[in-house]
Simulated assay, not measured.
Amino acid sequence: MSTITTKDGTQIFYRDFGSGQPVIFSHGWPLSADAWDAQMVFLGQHGYRVIAHDRRSHGRSTQTWDGNHMDQYADDLAELIEALDLRDAVMVGHSTGGGEVARYLGRHGSGRIAKAVLVGAVPPLMLKTPGNPGGLPIEVFDGIRKGTFDNRSQFYKDLAVPFYGYNRPGAAVSEGARDSFWLQGMLGGLKGQLDCIKQFSETDFTEDLKKIDIPTLFIHGDDDQIVPIAAASEIAVTLVPHATLTVYPGGAHGLSLTEQDKFNADLLAFIKA
């Protein structure tokens, strides 16, 4: 069990395996570093150092009452990167973790970072507003809040179905994947997970994206039922100067699991390029 203690006394759990150029993973909500198991082993076997942390109030990190907001998530990640003295690193963020990567780069710059990969990521803004008419209405996120507060155990079991596209015709449903999603979610703290819903839905990452000055790859499934591609990566890629978008036809939100081999190969190719 490896942890760092941040300036505000929060313990951030992380895994650190292998050697070589570092690749840093930021997970989605309500998951943990475990969501990246297959990618960490795959890249570790290909000669990379792989690091993944549990966001505060998620997984094995401290369940905090305060500080569950995007600026602090990015600052926690910065403290981890500095504590491990990581340089020439590749950042990989899924969903909320993609927002965390964008906010880190907007807030702390790319001095230690070589490339970034945002997968099914929430930037630039998930919420529907007058300036973002393609976003999702606030009622969607209020429903997530209510489901999480009323009975998060059942809500996480149910959420795994659209997350992995298991409600689509012909989908090969993995009960093990659903169980893992539930377990990762239940390890975290309710207060921090509720706070995080506002962060992934209402944070505007537009200015962060404009500051990203390193090669950036967006990967998104065009059947993502959690973060619809039209209001996310299709817009975000136009805001990052050195960015490309790879679309997975029929791809679900949790494509790092449902299309694991393809995703791992694409990730490796981008890092090597």
Rank of each mutant, 00 (worst) to 15 (best):
R145L: 10
S153H: 15
I113V: 13
D142Q: 10
G254R: 01
H58S: 04
S19F: 08
V247A: 01
A83W: 02
V161M: 06
V41P: 00
W65Y: 15
K128I: 03
M91W: 11
T148L: 02
L105F: 10
L127V: 11
H253K: 06
V161H: 00
D213G: 10
I51L: 09
Y104W: 08
Y48T: 03
F263N: 08
A243M: 09
L31M: 12
G59T: 06
V117K: 00
R152K: 10
G131E: 14
L209Q: 04
H242K: 15
I51Y: 07
K210N: 10
W182L: 13
M91Y: 13
I212F: 08
Y248A: 10
P124N: 09
P123H: 05
K210P: 04
L159Q: 03
L187P: 01
F163M: 08
S180Q: 14
K191M: 13
D71Y: 03
A265M: 11
P215S: 04
L217K: 05
L239F: 00
I219R: 04
D71W: 04
G44A: 06
P30Y: 02
G59R: 01
R152S: 11
T129E: 05
G189V: 11
G93M: 08
M91L: 15
F181D: 03
I214S: 01
L86A: 12
K211D: 10
V50R: 05
R152W: 12
F200K: 09
I81R: 07
L268R: 08
G109W: 02
Q21Y: 02
Q72D: 11
L187D: 14
A160N: 00
E79G: 01
M91D: 02
L194P: 08
K7S: 14
A171C: 10
V237M: 00
S61M: 02
G143S: 02
D195N: 13
S26C: 15
W29E: 07
A243H: 01
H220Q: 06
I229S: 01
V140Y: 03
L127Q: 11
S256D: 13
L194I: 12
M126Y: 06
G97C: 10
I81W: 02
P30M: 05
Y164M: 05
T10Q: 03
R103G: 09
Y164V: 09
L31R: 04
Q184I: 03
L105V: 11
M1Y: 13
Q45V: 07
M1I: 14
D142R: 11
G28E: 06
R103V: 11
H27Q: 09
G143I: 01
K115G: 00
N264D: 14
V173K: 12
E259G: 12
T246L: 15
H27L: 08
P133S: 09
L86E: 08
L125W: 00
L86H: 07
F205C: 12
R152E: 03
H46N: 15
D16F: 07
I214Y: 03
I229V: 09
Q45A: 12
T203C: 12
I81K: 04
R145N: 02
K128G: 02
L127D: 06
K262E: 14
P228Y: 01
F149T: 13
V247L: 07
G99T: 07
G59D: 06
T3R: 07
G47W: 04
L31V: 09
Q72N: 12
M1L: 15
M186E: 14
A89G: 05
H46R: 15
V173M: 11
